[in-house]
């Protein structure tokens, strides 16, 4: 892969990296700096990228590492809360799937905000950006089994949260 080819690949991901950076730094102005730092690092080390198809995941990985490096520099302990991945997966709340389909972005984001950070990250990488489990494992530096359990737990929790949101919306509609 030439540098020009890498440039094309990397810049095609700018919109997705921007969305990811904003998810990592919600409500902060740090996202712009994170985006720029990510690409500076990528352009400085692009020759270490072995496969073209790994470029997108590699950019996400860089952004994530830079973000958590900064958090570690600010705090003695990173903000990421550890979870016990051996906990039982919660039961999925029973509800009509089509009720979830009707929810809007605000309600989905509100439910996501209630997830554990690690679970939210895994669910978003999988469902929003479409990464495979092995890619998510590489981005987040955890085993594939952990990715799998985080997604399962995150989705089960989201199902409950979105189910509540859907029920509330239905009640609102029924109210005279």
């Amino acid at each position: 892969m030439t540098r020009d080819e890498f440039s094309e690949l990397a810049l095609a991901c700018l919109g997705e990296v921007t969305a990811f950076a904003r998810r990592l730094t919600p409500g902060g102005a740090d996202a712009d700096d994170l985006i720029q730092s990510t690409y500076e690092r990528a352009f400085a080390t692009w020759s270490t990228l072995r496969e073209r198809r790994a470029c997108r995941a590699w950019l996400f990985q860089i952004a994530r590492h830079l973000h958590f490096d900064r958090l570690r520099a600010v705090k003695a302990r990173p903000e990421l809360r550890l979870i016990d991945d051996d906990d039982a997966i919660p039961a999925v709340a029973t509800m009509a799937a089509d009720a979830i389909e009707r929810l809007d972005a605000r309600e989905i984001n509100a439910a996501l905000s209630h997830l554990d950070e690690a679970q939210r990250e895994a669910v978003l990488l999988c469902d929003l950006w479409g990464f495979a489990y092995d890619e998510i494992a590489a981005i987040t530096s955890v085993p594939i089994g952990t990715v799998r359990s985080r997604i399962a737990r995150g989705r089960a929790r989201l199902a409950a949260l979105l189910g509540n949101a859907a029920s509330a919306e239905q009640s609102e509609r029924r109210r005279p």
Binding site: G15, R22, L112, V123
Partner: peptide
């Protein structure tokens, strides 16, 4: 069906945003 609906719901969010 519920879990698949959750996946679709998250997938409807914006995966790309324009930087400044």
């Amino acid at each position: 069906a519920s879990l698949r609906a959750v996946k679709h719901a998250v997938g409807r969010l914006s995966s790309r945003e324009e930087p400044p």
